[in-house]
Design a binder for these strands. Structure first.
Length: 433
DNA sequence: TCTGGGGTCCTAGGACCC
DNA sequence: TCTGGGGTCCTAGGACCC
């Protein structure tokens, strides 16, 4: 048995903790560059704002419907997430942190009434962090996800499901007819693993609800779709195919990509951006004690600007040997960039990815033919990471990264950023009696 | 004027091998 | 007219997730 604990409208809820005036007001949190809505309060959803809606298309709701939009404050959300996860972990013996606002809990061996216990944990999270969450319980991770969806929908849209399923939904505690009714009332697209494309194909074949999907023949599913969907169907029937990942796995690739605040035409600006992205990625790979054997760099124009001539290229640069050294990774990325850069385009986005990652503890032995300084270099990187952690991101960087943040022409827009309430001493709220 | 960022897994097809 | 069979490895692209 698994539970899925998931924060409601997570980013919006984080902001509301520190700005209670936002409660019961339609609120969205915008992606980097203030580009599109990546979190919506229930009131914002009720206004018909879709996930990922471009800000410039919904901006008019500010004046007409009192919509409040905030720039994403990921530092705050990460910290709130840690607090929520620690409280959620008390629900069972093992926890898998699946995303910033979701964790699976293995309920094996947990005694007593699971629904009651879940409500208690839910209250503790609400009290301790201010974040409301939903809890779904099922025999497999897919069923727990589905139960979570039902718990949240039952709360948000009264009448959609039986009232007692709101906030906490345990599918195992339902009778067979009750469960069938719930499955028949749930669109197939809500299932974990069924996205837009598969959903479309299923609907064409007359498979509309979870109940329909569950009854499909396994071999047919495999033939017409894939083993992935076959597993999903099995999971819906109660056969576990996806295990809980208790230990966080090392990443297999690490990316740092950004859209620019305005189009870039000049190579030296791209050089700055790519230096910055490769440096960030290098930090991340060192943090997981890894090294990369290949560096991928890409640049592209904006596909949304139909009138612009389009260009999109990427190149993978193999390293002579795996490295986590900022200078090595930046140099490779810049070399790649110069090989794909073409003059005359309005570039909207660039990115660096580190591929073929491996542990830095397994080093390929090698004859020291070129005055090996690996030891010194990794001490230098350690010093750089320590300084940047202590004094702020990017305080120590390579010269090719260019000017300090706010002087760059390509920096992303973030016009509605809230303070670092829990992560920055200067921003800590003051309580008054 | 303005459309995010960071991941994973699977599959198909090509290169290459015997 | 007819042109093997079976395997591995790699890559690109597509689908999904949040």
């Amino acid at each position: 048995m698994y539970a899925l604990v998931d924060g409601n409208n997570f980013y919006v809820s984080c902001e509301r903790v520190f700005q209670p005036a936002l409660n019961s007001v339609p609120v969205v949190v915008l992606s980097n560059n203030d580009g599109c809505a990546i979190a919506r309060s229930n009131e914002a959803k009720a206004l018909g704002i879709a996930m990922g809606a471009p800000w410039f298309q919904i901006k008019h709701l500010e004046a007409s419907a009192g919509l409040v939009a905030l720039s994403a404050n990921f530092g705050l959300y990460g910290d709130m997430s840690d607090r929520m996860m620690r409280l959620a972990a008390a629900l069972g013996p093992r926890q898998e942190i699946y995303s910033i606002d979701e964790s699976f809990i293995d309920l094996a061996g947990v005694r007593g009434d699971l629904v009651e216990r879940s409500h208690a944990i839910r209250s503790r999270i609400l009290q301790g962090t201010g974040i409301p969450c939903g809890i779904g319980i099922g025999r497999t991770k897919t069923l727990a996800k589905l139960a979570n969806h039902i718990a949240k929908t039952a709360e948000r849209k009264p009448g959609s499901y039986p009232e007692q399923l709101a906030q906490v939904c345990n599918l195992e505690s339902l009778s067979v007819p009750e469960r069938d009714a719930v499955f028949a009332a749930t669109p197939v697209g809500e299932v974990w693993g069924v996205g837009r494309q598969i959903s479309k194909k299923l609907l064409t074949g007359g498979v509309n609800t979870v109940q329909d999907l569950l009854r499909l023949d396994l071999a047919t599913v495999r033939r017409q779709f894939s083993v992935v969907l076959e597993r999903t169907v099995l999971e819906l029937r109660g056969t576990p195919c996806i295990e809980l990942e208790h230990m966080a796995q090392a990443k297999k690739e690490i990316a740092c990509t950004r859209s620019f605040g305005r189009p870039i035409t000049e190579l030296h600006h791209l050089n700055e951006a790519v230096t910055e992205f490769a440096s960030r990625a290098a930090e991340k790979v060192r943090k997981q004690q890894g090294m990369a054997a290949q560096v991928l760099v890409y640049i592209r124009t904006s596909p949304f600007r139909k009138d612009d001539r389009q260009y999109s290229r990427s190149v993978t640069v193999p390293l002579r040997r795996p490295s986590a050294d900022t200078a090595v990774l930046v140099q490779s990325a810049l070399r790649g960039l110069s090989s794909i850069f073409v003059e005359g385009f309005r570039y909207a986005k660039a990115g660096v990815m580190l591929l073929d990652l491996q542990s830095d503890r397994v080093q390929q032995g090698e004859l020291d033919l070129e005055n090996d300084q690996t030891e010194d270099r990794s001490r230098l990187m350690l010093a750089m990471d320590t300084l940047n952690r202590r004094f702020g991101k990017g305080k120590v960087h390579l010269a090719s990264a260019g000017l300090a943040g706010n002087q760059r022409t390509w920096s992303m827009r973030q016009e509605r950023r809230t303070p670092g309430y829990t992560t920055c001493w200067a921003d800590i709220p003051i309580a008054r009696a």
